[in-house]
């Protein structure tokens, strides 16, 4: 019963957060000084014709009415229509439907890569604590973690793409070998910070477990180091590890803005950035809402899983 109450309470909080997000984004877009209709009409701008288009999009209605129309549309699954010149009148979902899987794919690849590299490095550091390997690898991981992706990306593009010409600096999903080459730089750079994070976190988790009494007992019993590490220690790091992967998944989706924009990857982050430049209110609202929904949903699920695992959380 306590779990059900907890879940319902969290679910209602999630809805409230989403409502606040969509209200803020709606207000910000409408209060922007940039007029999407002016963007559409270019050099043949006419005040009368602009008024006509504004009317067609309902932009001439009072703000509260536009808001009600917007929320009403959302409740019916309608994200609205694009107000940008390049995609005028197209349903917003038709613009986003290919972007969502791209962002998820990018995030998934980066997550896999960062786990594949970060965890073994963290493990190696822990078992070689205070050695040259430990200090060296942790220094590298610290740099990866600390250097912002917006610094790392242009540097890598100039050196690896422009000067060495090893890999393409834009594009995504081309057929054949080119598609693979296109993915290497963005996935690697996206995974870089996470790799550092996972390596450092995992080292801490493992060191903490290795200092526990039951590990000492296992050693005293004469168990082999390999068995102690894999059977007893590593297994017990999985719970704290899971606790950091949840928020990271949310970060991977929302953090795609920089990577997607720099590499021209047609994901949800890049679409959002371009829609801001085009004053395309409907797309801005839809993408922000989608991203917020994803983050809130991941947090909701994490909370529920925690509550399942640890009854103290429900109190």
């Amino acid at each position: 019963m306590a779990l059900l109450t907890f879940t319902v309470r969290r679910f209602l909080a999630m809805i409230l957060i989403l409502w606040i997000v969509l209200t803020i984004v709606f207000a910000m877009a409408r209060l922007s000084p940039y007029d999407p209709i002016a963007q559409i009409m270019q050099q043949h701008y006419q005040v009368a014709q602009a008024a006509q288009i504004r009317h067609e999009f309902g932009l001439d209605q009072p703000m509260w009415k536009q808001y009600l129309n917007y929320v009403g549309g959302l409740l019916h699954g309608d994200l609205g229509k694009s107000e940008s010149q390049q995609t005028l009148g197209q349903p917003v979902w038709s613009l986003l439907q290919h972007g969502v899987p791209v962002t998820m794919k990018l995030g998934f690849y980066a997550l896999v890569l960062s786990l594949v590299v970060g965890l073994p490095v963290g493990l190696l550091s822990a078992i070689k604590q205070n050695s040259f390997v430990d200090h060296g690898s942790q220094a590298i991981m610290m740099v990866l973690y600390a250097v912002p992706v917006f610094v790392l990306v242009p540097l890598a593009q100039v050196v690896i793409g422009v000067q060495l010409r090893w890999l393409p600096v834009t594009g995504w999903g081309a057929p054949g070998v080119l598609g693979f080459k296109e993915a290497i730089l963005p996935v690697t750079l996206y995974a870089a910070g996470l790799t550092g994070y996972f390596a450092k976190s995992y080292r801490s988790f493992l060191l903490e477990v290795l200092s526990q009494d039951y590990i000492r007992t296992a050693r005293a019993k004469g168990l082999k180091a390999r068995i102690i590490l894999y059977i007893h220690a590593v297994k017990n790091t999985l719970v704290p590890l899971a606790s950091i992967v949840g928020p990271v998944v949310a970060y991977l989706i929302t953090g795609a803005f920089v990577i997607e924009t720099f590499f021209g990857i047609p994901g949800i982050g890049y679409i959002t950035v371009e829609s801001i430049f085009n004053s395309d209110y409907s797309v801005i609202e839809a993408t922000t809402l989608l991203l917020a929904a994803f983050v809130v949903l991941v947090n909701f699920l994490t909370d529920v899983v925690y509550a399942l695992v640890d009854p103290r959380v429900r109190l």
Binding site: K105, Y109, V112, G173, A174, P175, G176, V177, L178, G179, F180, K181, E182, A183, I184, V187
Partner: peptide, 8 residues
């Protein structure tokens, strides 16, 4: 896995 992404 990543290379599969490029092959279509």
């Amino acid at each position: 896995a990543i290379s599969a992404h490029g092959v279509s």
